[in-house]
């Protein structure tokens, strides 16, 4: 049962790995370019999930200190608060992700205009006939 414990105690990692592999599979193996882009999104989201999940602690709350500066009365117990840094990092990563998504979609539009299809094998077929 050690294995079960091992899996359950780190379930957030397992979740992100499963999601990441789904995304990875779609990026590598799917024929349809839109599906590739969706896979890319899942892949990136999985990583965001991973980062955010590392920040959480049991019983902790959002890291907002109610009293302001200068009124330092209570000693801050870090165990009560979640780690804010991964969230902040992921805000940036989400921006990156969205822009990548945008570029990818723009490329797909270009490709669709050019080849009238978004199936990779069909595009390659067209290219091969172009080469003669």
């Amino acid at each position: 049962m050690e294995i079960m414990d091992f899996i359950i105690s780190k379930y957030n990692y397992w979740m992100y790995i499963i999601l990441m592999m789904i995304g990875f599979y779609a990026m590598i193996a799917k024929n349809n370019l839109v599906k590739k882009v969706i896979g890319m999104n899942i892949f990136q989201t999985a990583i965001i999930l991973f980062f955010v999940s590392t920040a959480s602690k049991k019983g902790a709350t959002i890291p907002i200190i109610q009293h302001g500066h200068g009124e330092a009365a209570d000693i801050i117990n870090t165990a009560q608060y979640m780690n804010p840094l991964p969230h902040v990092l992921m805000l940036t990563a989400i921006v990156v992700m969205v822009s990548t998504f945008g570029v990818a979609i723009a490329l797909l539009i270009m490709l669709y205009k050019k080849y009238n299809t978004l199936e990779e094998d069909e595009i390659l077929e067209i290219l091969r006939t172009e080469d003669g």
Partner: peptide
Amino acid sequence: SFNYVIMGTI
């Protein structure tokens, strides 16, 4: 470029 996007993102 699209293939580069996929690989680069990975």
